Simulated assay, not measured.
Amino acid sequence: MSAAERTLSIGPHARQTPRLSVLTPFHKHDPSPLLKALRGAPDGVEFVLLDDGSGSAHLLADVAHAAEALAAPVRIIVWDRNQGRAAGRNRLIAEARAEYVLFLDADMIPDAANFLAIWLGFIDWQRPYVAFGGLSLRQAAATRETALHHGLFARSDCKPAHLRERAPAQSVATANLLVRRDFLAAHPFDNGFVGWGFEDVDWALSAAQHAPIAHIDNSATHAGLDDVDVLMRKCREAGPNFARLAAKHPRQVARFAAHRTARALKLAPQWLRGVFAWLARDPMGAAPMPVRCAALKLYRASLYAEHLP
């Protein structure tokens, strides 16, 4: 059953078709810092946000206030209940008006002051089907609670374009992704991915069969780092989605390190998972960060193993 929705229109009305639609879904996470960072956007940019069932009037009021300060056309779609990341992005695609859309997650902060201008220039120069700008931690300080996520993300996700190009589809995330809207209309996200994880990897692996994926260095900081409890919850939620990904793309996913590790752990005793979790949490404060990161990856792979045939 589809969620009931309403739409808030904020700011000036676009006098002509925008050149770029910035699309941001959010669920109980305030995208106001992102909107603040995007003030002074170039002409021809519209912003479309989706409140995916947050159910908070206070949060929605804060987002609307931040949207007003953009002085650009903004629409906020509000769903009465959560529909998931894939469905939310498909709804944003349908609402977008520009030839190109830029997915920016609610917890991202652009690293360059001219971040949107760089994307617009790349559109004019290359006319890409798909392009990924990259992720960073330049503006994200590691706290004691988020140190593990900071360490893991720095090692796995913060890579320059020339390294991402070695595995262009596998190196894509919808946190900072530019796509032609007509290409998205022909190749939408799979709504079968619910909960957390892998809907963007699935989309990228499918998209790469139809168009090249470009990579540029126009990064945004992942400012919404999680503590260990949240990381482990997301690992548990991602298991069914990882299995769906592997079933849809068996040849590609078989090359993923996470898949090989999950296969190796299928016959491992259950108590090993507790050891991995204990090392990742590091209650004694003695484990080096590379050890904690490796332990979390093994914990995650042991959960994926449960859902693989």
Rank of each mutant, 00 (worst) to 15 (best):
A57W: 03
H58V: 13
H187G: 08
I118W: 01
S136I: 07
A214D: 05
A173S: 15
L120R: 14
I123A: 06
A87H: 07
D30M: 07
A96P: 01
W203P: 00
F47S: 00
R138M: 09
P25N: 02
A154N: 02
D157L: 12
A66W: 06
L49M: 11
H29C: 02
V48T: 04
A69D: 14
P31I: 06
A57F: 04
R15S: 11
A257R: 14
K36T: 12
R251Y: 04
S136E: 08
L205H: 13
A131W: 00
H149D: 15
A66F: 07
R155D: 03
E165L: 14
I213K: 01
A214Q: 07
P33E: 08
A96T: 02
L104F: 10
A69T: 14
F193W: 07
D52G: 04
P188A: 11
R138Q: 14
W196V: 13
A37L: 11
R292Q: 14
G44A: 09
A287Y: 13
K297F: 10
E68M: 10
K248T: 08
R263K: 12
A247H: 10
D190V: 10
L50C: 06
D51H: 09
H29M: 11
A142G: 10
F122D: 05
S136Q: 11
D200T: 09
A220M: 11
W79Y: 08
G197L: 06
R233D: 07
W203E: 03
A154V: 03
H210P: 08
I118C: 13
G151W: 05
E95V: 02
L231Y: 00
H150K: 08
A280F: 11
G133R: 05
L245V: 08
L296Q: 15
D182A: 13
S171Y: 08
A71C: 13
A207F: 06
H187S: 07
D30E: 10
Q170N: 09
V228Q: 06
L23G: 01
G40R: 12
Q170R: 15
A72S: 10
T17G: 04
H65G: 08
S171I: 10
G239K: 04
V101N: 00
L104K: 00
R273L: 03
R166Y: 13
F256K: 04
G224V: 05
S206N: 13
V230N: 02
E99I: 04
L267D: 12
F189T: 10
W125I: 03
V74A: 02
A257K: 14
A287I: 14
V291R: 09
W271P: 03
R81N: 00
K248S: 10
A204H: 09
L308K: 06
L225M: 13
C293V: 15
A64H: 08
H307R: 14
L267E: 06
A67Y: 02
R244H: 10
R15G: 15
